[in-house]
Amino acid sequence: MGKTALAHGKSWSDRIFDALVFIIVLLVVVITIYPFLNVLAISLNDSIDSVRGGITIFPRHFTWDNYIKIFTFSGLITGFKISALRTIAGTLLGLFSASMLAFTISREDFQGRKFVSTFLALTMYVSGGLIPTYILMKDLGLMNTFAVYILPGIVSAFNVFVIRSFIDGIPYALQESAKLDGANDFTIYWRVILPLAKPALATISLFLAVGQWNAWFDTYLYNGSSESLTTLQYELMKVLQSTTAGSGGDYRTNLVTSTVNQVSPESIKMAITIIVTVPILLVYPFLQKYFVKGMTLGAVKS
C-alpha cells in the first residue's frame, strides 16, 4: 500500500469498501428479518391458498381465520395463562432475590461476603446435571406443580453478579449518610440502592422474563402430564413436532402422554408461532437501551 495508494485511490477504495460493508450488513438484516415476516404473512393468509406456496412477506388472501381458529384450542388458553403467570411471578421473585444478594455481597464490611459470593460463583461452573435435578424435584414433591417453574430458578448467580457490579458503581457515601439518619441495612437496600439500580434491574428483569416466557423443557420434564399446568411454548412445541415425527415423541414415551397428535396445517402453526412471539416484540423496544448496557456490564465484570 503506502503512499501510492493514498495518492491514487483513497476515496475510491474507501467508497467501494463502504458499499461492500453496507451490502453485507443489509444482507444480514434481510436474512434475520425475512423468516419472521414470512411466518407472519403465512399466518394471515388463507390456509388452503397457502398450500400453493409462493407467499413471501405479504399475505395473498388475507384472513384472520387462523387466529380465530387457534383461540378455540383449550390448551393454548391455559398455556397463555400459565406462561403469563410464571413470567410475572418468576421475574418479580428473581429480581428481588438477585438484588438483595447483590446488595449484601457489594458491602465490603459484610463478614459473610466472601463465603456468600464464592458459594454463588461455584454454581456457575458445576451443575448436578439433568437426572440428579429431576430426582431432586421428584423428592421435593414438585412434580406436577406450578412451583416447579418458579422455585429452582429464583437465585441465579449470573444475575446477582451483574447487579452487584452495578451497585459497586453507586457512591458508598449515600449509604453512609442514610445510616447516619438511622436507616438499617434493609431500609438502605429498599430506599437507596433499589431506586438507583434501576437500569441494572431493568436488564435483569428482561433476562428473567424472556427466560420464563421461553421455557418449555421444564413443562415437558415435570408437568407434561398435567394439562392445567401447560405452557404456551410447550403447546407450540407439541404442535410443531406433530408433523416431523420429531425426536419429541421419541423421548416422551415414558414421561408424558402427548395430547396433540393430529397434524396441524401450516398456517395454524405459523399463527401460534406469532402469538408466542408477539409479547416479546412488544416489550423489546422499551428495554433495548437497557439490555445493551447490562450485557456489557455483566461480561466485563463477571
Binding site: 446488595f103 454454581t123 451443575s127 448436578g128 446435571g129 440428579p132 431432586l136 437465585v155
Partner: peptide, 17 residues
C-alpha cells in the same frame, strides 16, 4: 437478607451434586 438465599442455592444447586 443473604442466608435464606444461601440455603436456597444449597437446595437447588448443591443437593443435585
Amino acid at each position: 437478607m443473604s442466608l435464606p438465599f444461601v440455603i436456597w442455592v444449597f437446595v437447588f444447586s448443591y443437593l443435585p451434586l
